[in-house]
Write a protein that binds this DNA or RNA. Structure first.
Lengths: 116, 116
DNA sequence: ACGATTATTAGCCCTAGAGTTATAGGTTCT
DNA sequence: AGAACCTATAACTCTAGGGCTAATAATCGT
């Protein structure tokens, strides 16, 4: 399964979110998902591994997982082609709203993707 | 199926790529994929519609599809949390783009983020 | 109204994904 | 070596995704 497929599952996305805050052992990751069985979680981790999104190393009896963020680069590259689209559309929406009521001259500047 | 799931299929990603260059009728989109039956393509378009990634309107006998880029915003937002990672770790996006064949521009994608 | 055109839905298969229990693989401790 | 621990794999079931053909819907031209 490629990276796009791996990201389709919410559990796996949450695993990546956890790992983005630091490496964790498989057991620690599993304890966050009481609803998922241990083998089930191991399988999710395997999918993430084979998609190149995490790596695992062994330390004593544990397996320590860490993020391999480069694996997300193709996904980000793909979506970056669209990034301008909704920015300009939202800008258009904003100026429409300006025209509707607000006399405010707040010019919508091109900005990052994280507002909204 | 949510947007992440919709993007997991390569045919659907290609459909979005086509629509990013302008609206197309269902038939025009289908002609690009001779390997996929017409009902099969219609199903992909339905998935994209229900995921909020495209919209369709009717014009005479045709159904004209167009991109709804805002639907991609949640995906971009999710991945934006990781964007800094590979820049600081490896700058792997650049190597990815190099591997794609493009001569290495220091800032390959047009980006609106305001890091640094 | 009828036939032609364009696209969607319905009704099937068939495979892949995700979950489960049971088992195996390593590692550490005694 | 054997027990305890942590994680991965095997074998199986069940469901959802995706493909196909056939049928249905909507529109246009005559």
């Amino acid at each position: 399964m490629d990276a796009f497929g791996a990201l389709a599952d919410p559990t796996r996305r949450e695993l990546l979110d956890l790992l983005s805050r630091g490496e964790r052992t498989a057991g620690e990751l599993g304890s966050v998902f009481p609803s998922v069985s241990q083998p089930g979680l191991s399988r999710h981790l395997r999918v993430l591994r084979e998609a190149g999104l995490v790596r695992a190393r062994r330390q004593s009896r544990h397996r320590i997982y860490s993020l391999r963020s480069e694996g997300l680069a193709p996904v980000d590259f793909w979506i970056s082609k669209y990034r301008g689209f909704w920015e300009t559309e939202l800008d258009a929406l904003e100026s429409f709203l300006d025209a509707q009521g607000r006399a405010g001259a707040r010019r919508p500047t091109r900005r990052g993707t994280r507002d909204r």
